[in-house]
Structure formats: structure tokens, C-alpha cells
């Protein structure tokens, strides 16, 4: 049983862009395309044996990630009536997170969704280009006034804390994202929406072989310090929201 960042996870994190391309291709049932794909020199990039290897790597990665995110899930969903894991098949990819690297949780209040996202990301800005566990806490509503008000109030709540808190957003892009989200669509790749209306953003640098316990401790700390401690206030803000 894996209890630390495995070599497979580490390989994925260090080669995330290429790996995502491959894994998504496998997922899209285009294996024949994959095995028939030629590089510029006319050679097959991957033959059947290569595809088989990727499948094994993919499944090992999914398995290792599942164990890790199960650990996180238990922390995030521990409080009754708060976050639930999102199990819908189609959902907005807010960042470049995908099923190989992340897990989503949501909380609904007053028909507004709070989303907590854990992503094994390739880039953690705070650590240069090191792999990191990225945590985004965000909200889905088109009520601009509400968003601004929420930002101000949360800014006051979290004043002095060590995390990013920015609500400067592109209204048109945000609203489009919200529309698509509530229509249960996925973004097209070219429409990828890099949200800048996170309520909270935190990251934790990962290392090869890092024990899951360390990640667990970080997530616990994040949840307790930044979510649970302010939960009543967050919920009150949401409850008092004016819905468009």
C-alpha cells in the first residue's frame, strides 16, 4: 500500500504536460491514433507495447492518487454538512487539473457553490517550478456585487494570513465559465479558463517519496486554519447573498 509520493506519481509530476497529453488520449479511446501516430521522422511514437506500458503506468498513477486523495477526502468531508466530493462526470476544469491529478469538493449554500480543489500541479509559483499540491477555494456565482462584497469580507477575515486572496476577475470570462459550469459542460481546451477569482489559494511543495502523512498534516492545517475556523462567517456571507 502506497503511503508516500510514489515514483510513478513523481514521474507524472515531472512530466505532467506530456503525460496529460498521453493519458487524455488513452482516455479518449483514440489508442489506434496513438499507436499509429508518426513523429516528424516518420517513426511510430508508440507501438502497441508502448500503449500497454502507458496503461500500466496510468493505472498505477490512478491507484496511488486514489490513496492520497482518499486521505484528503476524509479530512475535507469530515465536518457534517460541509464539503462533499464531486462525482459528476463532467465538470469545469478550472485549472489544468484532471482526474489524474486532482479531486474536487463542493458545498452549496443559497444556491451558490463553494468549490475546494486539490490538484497535484506541475507548477507551484511559490516554489519556482517544483511540483506542488495546489489548493483552490473558489465560488461560482455571476453576482458581481456579491463577489466583490465577499472578497472584501473574506479579505478582512483572512487578513494577515499567508496565502493568496484575489478576486480580480474577468467578468465576461467568469460569467461564461459559470454558465458552462451550471450546464455541466467541460471547457474546450482552447477555452481553458484560468480563474483569478480564487477566494483562497495555497500550495504545498511535494518531493519524491514525501510521506502522505506530511500532506495530510498540511491539509488538516489548511482546513482548520482557513476554512473551519471561519466557517460560520463564510456560511453567513453566502446565506446573505443576493442572487441574480
Amino acid at each position: 500500500m502506497t503511503d508516500k509520493i510514489s515514483r510513478t506519481q513523481w514521474f507524472y509530476l515531472q512530466n505532467k504536460e506530456n503525460m496529460d497529453s498521453l493519458l487524455e488520449l488513452l482516455d479518449s479511446e483514440e489508442e489506434t491514433v496513438l499507436s499509429a501516430e508518426d513523429d516528424k521522422k516518420g517513426n511510430k511514437l508508440l507501438n502497441n507495447e508502448g500503449c500497454k506500458k502507458i496503461k500500466e503506468i496510468k493505472n498505477k498513477l490512478l491507484n496511488d492518487n486514489k490513496i492520497l486523495f482518499d486521505v484528503i477526502s476524509k479530512i475535507v468531508t469530515a465536518e457534517k454538512n460541509r464539503f462533499e466530493m464531486v462525482t459528476r462526470k463532467k465538470m469545469l476544469s478550472y485549472t489544468n487539473m484532471n482526474k489524474f491529478s486532482g479531486r474536487l469538493f463542493e458545498y452549496w449554500e443559497n444556491n451558490i457553490q463553494l468549490k475546494l480543489e486539490f490538484d497535484l500541479g506541475e507548477i507551484g509559483d511559490g516554489f519556482g517550478y517544483a511540483p506542488a499540491l495546489l489548493i483552490n477555494f473558489m465560488i461560482w456565482t455571476k453576482d458581481e456585487e456579491f463577489l466583490q462584497n465577499l472578497n472584501e469580507r473574506l479579505s478582512m477575515i483572512y487578513q494577515g494570513e499567508n496565502f493568496e486572496n484575489s478576486m480580480v476577475y474577468n467578468r465576461e470570462r467568469h460569467n461564461k465559465a459559470v454558465d458552462e459550469y451550471f450546464q455541466n459542460k467541460s471547457f474546450e481546451e482552447e477555452e481553458e479558463y484560468f480563474g483569478d477569482d480564487n477566494l483562497l489559494y495555497a500550495e504545498f511543495e511535494l518531493k519524491e517519496g514525501l510521506p502522505y502523512e506530511d500532506i495530510e498534516e498540511f491539509v488538516c492545517k489548511f482546513m482548520d486554519k482557513y476554512i473551519n475556523a471561519y466557517w460560520i462567517q463564510i456560511r453567513d456571507i453566502l446565506k446573505s447573498a443576493k442572487i441574480c
Binding site: 514521474f11 506530456n18 497529453s21 498521453l22 501516430e37 513523429d39 508508440l46 508502448g50 506500458k53 503506468i57
Partner: peptide, 14 residues
């Protein structure tokens, strides 16, 4: 974006 170099790397890792 997929290149032969990466495929070789993947094979070696496997």
C-alpha cells in the same frame, strides 16, 4: 507536444 524524447524517457521509466 509529445516527442520522441519523452517516449524514450517513458519507456525507460517503465
Amino acid at each position: 507536444k509529445l516527442n520522441k524524447f519523452f517516449v524514450e524517457k517513458l519507456n525507460a521509466f517503465y
